[in-house]
Design a protein around this nucleic acid. Structure first.
Lengths: 339, 339
DNA sequence: GTATCAACCGTGAGCGCTAACATTTCCTCG
DNA sequence: CGAGGAAATGTTAGCGCTCACGGTTGATAC
């Protein structure tokens, strides 16, 4: 009834009811010490009676502890971002934080002001799930504007960005891609082709690195969009080429696209062509044939990102990063080439 | 720099710089009339110079127009909810609204207080993406507490809930499931089995209704969880039974699980078994074989939900609901039964 | 030249809360 | 038994903004 009804109950109403000052009520709802048990109980009863609920705007305005995070991301319906978001949400709500999301459109360019304007206020804490150009730019902007209140996940750029450990939960995409490529190479493939999604340069780097170490000249990268459909289209040429025996894909969705294209082209999997994905999305295990891929713990990364942010905000012991490390999962889309 | 730096620039700083009162600045940032063009320009210049950005907390506290929505949902990584969320986000950010998300855990039960506490303040506008028990309960709680500021999407319960049109963007799951079932029946199947996901009773109703109209006794419903894996497991018995020639699934993910189980059981698709999903997720078109399913415009539903909420908040002309109506998409997992 | 009325702009209060400090109470100890 | 001090509570100010006014212009009308 409160929407249209009378003014919602405030801290003063509770105070009056409990026969204390409003500040005491504030202490109770903030679990502050220095309140007698009896008083605390009385206040809590009053809160329950009146159905009081604190007003977050007032709280943040008054300069109390921050209790919200803005998450910048670029597409909530992709497996990786959705899972990361979920991880952030889990950790955040457990800690009593509100999470706001701000979805950036990869097609659009944003000015610094555009991005900062999406924060609820100047200096508001933020997490950036940076998996493409646009979000990487957001990461840069936020990091410049308010280094104390930003954390990011995504493309590992360790070594290029200063103090990355303080504010970045890296996925080490390079190592992941390298591992996958090496595996394919180890199966006896002469070379491995790469189907790239937009703005994930580090995975491509890892692939190139693995090839370089094996002494093979990397073939031309084939560029795809983010959707299964775009991958199927982009890979049409690749799968038609009988010289191509192994393709590594930027993520699982792209791999499904490739598999579809390969099927249409009549190429046998994995006899004629090995395909490997990345992310281990739920579909990977149930696709027929089962998709070989890299398991990435996005949810864990999201949780860790939140913990890191919280650490920056509130201090306390260094949070140990706690996500499963990436792991190769061999299923049925990969094998030795047929001679 | 504002996080650790000096106090962020406020409306007063801008006012001083522009040589006007703070109220005039407020007028400018709110696009209010009654400000001379010259003054407006001067203020805007000052805003740009100082890099001023309004503080949302202060704005909502001071009782201005509401500019945020809290979205209640139960799993941001499912296709349907992710897309709906995306639709809401699109519309909301276009309208200058902030979107907060609040993820409810289906395993958990929430008290009325728990749910209301997730609002940023008493009476804060909310959208509920109600696809299961928990979110449906949230919908009920919010609707009771603040009918003026709640809108929901999801399971159609028209006829049972009063004034549904005012606050519900229905998906008419019943009709969708009925359509799919009728299609299967029309292919010549004696009966259609149903693999249910948790808490989507209306789809089951539609299936039962279609069977009833065809004069066939509905077989026992098989219950699944939300994941592909749980579906594969739950459907194991069904696919092993050669009497079963058609299965309709609660959504596409479940259908993929069934397809997987069928493959393992050695049943031919669609010769031995027809499978139909629901949602037309991106994978449906690229799965081999292509999944027959119902196309649902979740994104449009999300957009409409936001528009409806905005209408309730700000008045104005009735928003025309504008989402594509559900459509049957026939691909390769369905066909007539083999005799 | 004065009343009239827009258009424009400023002043003060207050939203609900917390920080910082002031005050009271009550126990401990020499 | 009074000084000292900690625990418990109250008081005041102010966060950044909007609302509801009140004041000031300048053009127009008579």
């Amino acid at each position: 009834m409160s929407a249209a009804g009378p003014r919602p109950v405030s801290i003063f109403d509770v105070a009056k009811r409990a026969g204390v000052s409003h500040q005491t009520v504030s202490r109770v709802i903030n679990d502050a010490p220095m309140v007698a048990d009896a008083t605390r109980a009385r206040v809590k009863a009053a809160i329950a009676d009146l159905g009081y609920r604190p007003n977050r705007s007032a709280r943040t305005l008054a300069g109390g502890a921050v209790r919200s995070v803005t998450v910048f991301t670029f597409d909530t319906s992709l497996y990786g971002t959705a899972e990361t978001l979920r991880g952030i949400e889990d950790a955040a709500s457990a800690a009593g934080f509100t999470v706001l999301i701000s979805v950036l459109d990869p097609e659009q360019t944003y000015t610094e002001g555009d991005i900062l304007a999406r924060l609820s206020h100047d200096g508001a804490p933020a997490i950036v799930i940076a998996h493409d150009e646009t979000t990487t730019q957001a990461r840069r902007v936020l990091r410049n504007a308010q280094p104390g209140a930003v954390v990011a996940t995504g493309d590992d750029q360790l070594g290029r960005e200063p103090d990355a450990a303080d504010w970045l939960v890296p996925l080490d995409d390079r190592a992941v891609a390298k591992r996958a490529t090496k595996y394919l190479l180890s199966m006896g493939h002469r070379t491995v082709h790469y189907l790239a999604m937009p703005g994930k340069a580090r995975r491509q780097d890892g692939w190139a690195e693995a090839l370089a170490e094996a002494g093979v000249e990397p073939p031309e990268v084939v560029q795809s969009g983010w959707t299964i459909g775009s991958a199927a289209e982009a890979a049409a040429g690749l799968v038609a080429d009988s010289e191509v025996t192994a393709i590594m894909c930027g993520n699982d969705d792209l791999a499904f696209g490739v598999l579809h294209a390969a099927h249409r082209a009549g190429r046998g999997i994995p006899g004629d062509l090995s395909v490997i994905g990345c992310d281990d999305s739920p579909m990977a295990a149930y696709h027929v044939p089962g998709l070989t891929t890299m398991d990435l713990d996005f949810r864990g990364v999201g949780r860790s990102a939140f913990e890191l942010l919280r650490h920056k905000l509130e201090g306390g012991p260094d949070p140990r990063p706690s996500w499963r490390s990436p792991e190769l999962i061999v299923r049925e889309t990969s094998g030795p080439p047929r001679h």
